[in-house]
Structures are given as C-alpha cells and as structure tokens.
C-alpha cells in the first residue's frame, strides 16, 4: 500500500509540476473569501466602536486568517471531477483497477495541499501583519488543532465523496453541491464566526456538519475557545466523521452496483 501511494504521489507531483501557476491560483482561492468577510467585519466593528460581542478588530483578523488556513487544508474538490467521470463513462477503467478510486483522490488532495502550504503561509503572514491580527493561541490549542484539522479534512473529503457519489443516480450533482455549498456559506463560519451567528442560526450550525469543517478548527487554532470546549467540539467532529464514513460506504457500494447495472 505504501509503495502504491509512493507511485501515485510521484505521478501526481509530476502532474502538479506541469501546472505550477495553477498551484498558486488554488492557494489564493482559499484566501480570498475569508479576507472579504474579514474586511466587512472590520468595517462593522469600526462602526460600533471596535467591538462586536467578544471580538474586536484584531480578533476578527486572527479568526479569518485561521479560517483561511483551515479552508486550504480541508479543501475537497473531487466531487466535480467524479461527476464528470461518471457522466462520460470515464469511471469504468478506474473501477477495473485493483485500487479503490478514492485513493487517487486522496493522493491528489494531499499533493495539492503540500504544494500550497508554503506560498499560503507567506500570504497569511502578510495579511496578519496588514490587519494586525491577535492570536490567543496557547500550546494546548496548537496540540488540539492538529487532530482537529485532520478530522475536519477527513470530514470534508468524505462528505464531498458522498455528494459526488450521488452522480450514480442523478446527473444533477451540480445542484446538490450548490445547495451544500450555500448551506456551508451560512453555517460553516464563513460569513461570520459561529459565535456571532444571530439567535437560532448558531444552534443550527452546531447541529450541522458544516461548522465542524471550517469554523471549529479555526476557532481552536485562534485560541478562541477553551481547551475543554475544544475537546467537546472535536467530539462533534468525530461523530460527523463517523456518520459520513458509514454513509460513504453504504452509498458507494449501492452506487457501484447501480452504475454497473446501467452498464455505462
């Protein structure tokens, strides 16, 4: 298995080296939206004398920088490619190989993150200076962040695959993922830190998986929650991961059966 991964890794790096410019573009991808909302919250906070709830301007900066890092580390885009493969019958050759297609995606995903992490860090340092970010991070937070972001990445990856797998039944994966993305837009902590979502939205966001992918690891890294709360939130991550793991296995098996049945 390790050798397989090594070979896949080489192949993917090779592909990546061909598209050097693209690597940088993807990196910017995970920075832009957080910066947009950071700027908006800074404007709102300034209009209110510099403080919104427990956040001041520098806390917002730290939060959105963490969010940007997390969103790079948890990015998952394989749903779109997968749908394409199913639709145009490109999947069959992959199903014939003795390796589950998810492994190709895992490696591709890892390679993309590996190549982005360095340029991203540079950009984030620059932004944190521009906005004068203040992190409340303690060593404990860093220790908790590592497993938390891994849980988040796995969760994001698996949920992406569950969505993608719907391509076996419907040709409208695009609609499905649009609705999913828009829910994430509201509930994942993008438009506002989860703690600032008004009224019932906050409770709802804690019951849904979206926040556990972005907002939760970002708050842990920023030091915005106490370590004990962090552990609680990570339990939430683990629960959602388990749910999606089971769902993925079920859906995938049923989907492949359906796919071969149609004989595409």
């Amino acid at each position: 298995m390790i050798r397989t991964y090594r070979a896949l890794l080489v192949a993917q790096l090779q592909a990546a080296s061909q598209y050097r410019v693209q690597v940088l573009l993807w990196m910017l991808f995970s920075v832009i939206r957080p910066v947009i909302f950071l700027a908006a919250w800074v404007a709102v906070a300034n209009a209110q004398g510099g403080q919104i709830g427990t956040y001041d301007v520098r806390d917002f900066a730290a939060y959105y920088i963490c969010l940007s890092l997390v969103s790079c580390l948890t990015a998952s885009w394989n749903a779109y490619e997968f749908e394409y493969e199913v639709r145009f019958g490109r999947l069959s050759p992959k199903l014939l190989r003795p390796l589950h297609p998810i492994h190709y995606a895992v490696v591709e995903n890892l390679v993309a993150k590996l190549t982005q992490i360095v340029p991203l860090s540079i950009v984030l340092v620059f932004i944190s200076i521009t906005f004068d970010a203040r992190f409340r991070t303690t060593p404990a937070h860093v220790l908790l962040f590592v497993p938390s972001v891994m849980l988040a990445a796995a969760l994001s990856f698996l949920s992406g695959w569950v969505l993608a797998t719907t391509a076996f039944w419907t040709t409208r994966v695009h609609s499905v993922s649009t609705f999913w993305d828009r829910a994430a837009f509201i509930f994942a902590g993008q438009i506002a830190p989860l703690a600032l979502l008004p009224g019932p939205l906050q409770a709802i966001s804690l019951a849904l998986p979206f926040g556990y992918v972005l907002g939760v690891p970002a708050e842990i890294l920023r030091g915005g929650v106490s370590p004990s709360t962090a552990l609680l939130l990570m339990a939430g991550q683990a629960i959602w991961l388990a749910i999606f793991f089971v769902a993925f296995q079920r859906v995938w098996r049923a989907g492949v059966r359906q796919y071969s049945g149609v004989g595409a």
Binding site: A40, V44, A47, H174, T178, R182, F185, I191, L197, P198
Partner: peptide
Amino acid sequence: ETAVVTATSVGAVLILFSYTTVL
C-alpha cells in the same frame, strides 16, 4: 439554484447589519 444563492447572500448582509446600521 440562483435563487438560493441570492437569498443566502442577502442573508449574509442581513447578519452583518444585525450588528450595525451602517457599513
């Protein structure tokens, strides 16, 4: 889809404006 996208974006603006009256 476009309706959902637009509605959620309006939602985002409303959330921001729940904390302020001018931006």
